[in-house]
Nucleic acid binder design. Sequence first.
DNA 1: ACAAAAAGTTGAGTCATTGCACTTATTTAT
DNA 2: ATAAATAAGTGCAATGACTCAACTTTTTGT
Lengths: 207, 207
Amino acid sequence: MTETTTAGAGPVPGRRERKKAATRKALADAALELFLERGFDAVSIKDVAEAADVSTTTLFKHFPSKEALVFDMDADVEAALVTAVRDRDPGTPLLDALRRHMLHARVFKPEHERQITAFHDLINSTPALFDYYRRMWMRHARALAEAIAADLGVDTDDPTCTALAHFTLETRALTSTAPTPAATIEAAFDLLERGWHGVRPDRERSA
Amino acid sequence: MTETTTAGAGPVPGRRERKKAATRKALADAALELFLERGFDAVSIKDVAEAADVSTTTLFKHFPSKEALVFDMDADVEAALVTAVRDRDPGTPLLDALRRHMLHARVFKPEHERQITAFHDLINSTPALFDYYRRMWMRHARALAEAIAADLGVDTDDPTCTALAHFTLETRALTSTAPTPAATIEAAFDLLERGWHGVRPDRERSA
DNA sequence: ACAAAAAGTTGAGTCATTGCACTTATTTAT
DNA sequence: ATAAATAAGTGCAATGACTCAACTTTTTGT
C-alpha cells in the first residue's frame, strides 16, 4: 500500500539514483497536484513536465503513460495481495483474508494522505483513470492465482484458483459502480464462499 | 451474436439511411481486411478511410475510435446476454443458462465467418483490442444484473445480482489467459454455483 | 584522470482525435 | 414541385500523447 516501487533496504542508493528518484517524485507530485486542481483531462503532459521543470521526453523516460503518473504503486498492490494470502493469521480461512483485504485495501501516496478522498474522486470521475485503475488490479490476477494455488498446494495453473483470483480482483470494480460499495463486496464474497445455491437457496427450484 | 445494431424490421430504410449504412459497412469491412492483413497497429486511420474512399473526419462520424471499427456488435452482446437469461428453457437453472452462454457465445461478423479464428487471433495479439473487447463485455454488467434481478424478482440494485453479473462477464477474460479456456470457464461456474466450500471441501479445515 | 553508462535535452515527427466552416444530397412540409 | 430543414460528407487546421535519433552533461568504476 505504500509507494516505494522497489522498497526495502537498497544497499547504497548512490547520487545518481537519488537524483533520478527525485525527478520521478517531482513529476508524480506535480502531476497529482495539477490533476487534483484542474482535472486529469484539462492538464497536458507538457504542463506536468514544465511544473517539474523537465522536458516531456524526460517525463516519458520515467512514466510510460499519462495515467501512470497517478499510479506508481503497481508493485505494492501485488505484494499486498500475495501477503494477504501468504502471511495471514493461521486459522483465518483463505476467503476471509481475501474479503478483508479487498474491503480495506486503499491505494494512495503516503505523503498526500490528507487527500485520499479527493484522490479517489479524481479516479472515479475520470474514465481513463478509472480504467487504468481496474487494469492495475487485474494485472495481478496471475500472481494472486499463484499465491492461492501455493497456499492450497495445488498446481499453479489450477483453473479454480485462476477463477477465484479473477473474481476477487473484480470486486474492486464493484466498489465504484454500486450504490453501497461495502455491502456489494460482502455480497460478492458471500457468493464466492457459499455459492449461488448457498446464497439463494429458495429461488432456484421455481422453474 | 449477429451484427445488426438495431436489427429487426425497420419500417422504411430510406435512401439516406441506406447510404449511411453502406458507408459504415465499407469502413468496417476495409478496416477488418487491413487489420487482418497488416495488423492493427500497422494500419492508420487514414489508411482505412482511404480504402473506404471517405475522409478521416467521416470515419469518426461513424466510429468513435479506431478500436470501435472492429467491434460493431455491442448491442448484440447485450441483447444476447439478456435473452440467455430471460428466454431460457423453463426448467433450466439460471446459472446453467449463463454457463452455457459464456461457454458458447462467440463474437464475429457473419459475412466473415470463415475468418473467425484469424479474427480472434487479431484480438488476442493486440493489447488495445484485447482491452476494448474486455470492456465491451463489462459494459453490459448493469444490463445483465438487471436481467438477473428481474428473473429472481428482487430489487434492481441487489448486490448479489450485481456481483454475479460481474463474475459471469469476467469469465470472458479467463478464456484468453488460461491454458485450457473451456475448463477454466467450467471451474469458474462450478465455483459460482457451489461456492468455495463446495468446490474445495477438504482444504479449508487445515488451518 | 578517464571512458563507459545513464540521465537529460532538443527538435522533428507520427498518429488518433476534435472543431469549424463549408458543400451536397435527401427529406419534409407546404 | 419546391423551399427550408436536416444530415452526410469534406477539407483543413489544431491539440495532445507518445516516439525517435542525435547530442550534452553528469556520475561512476577503474
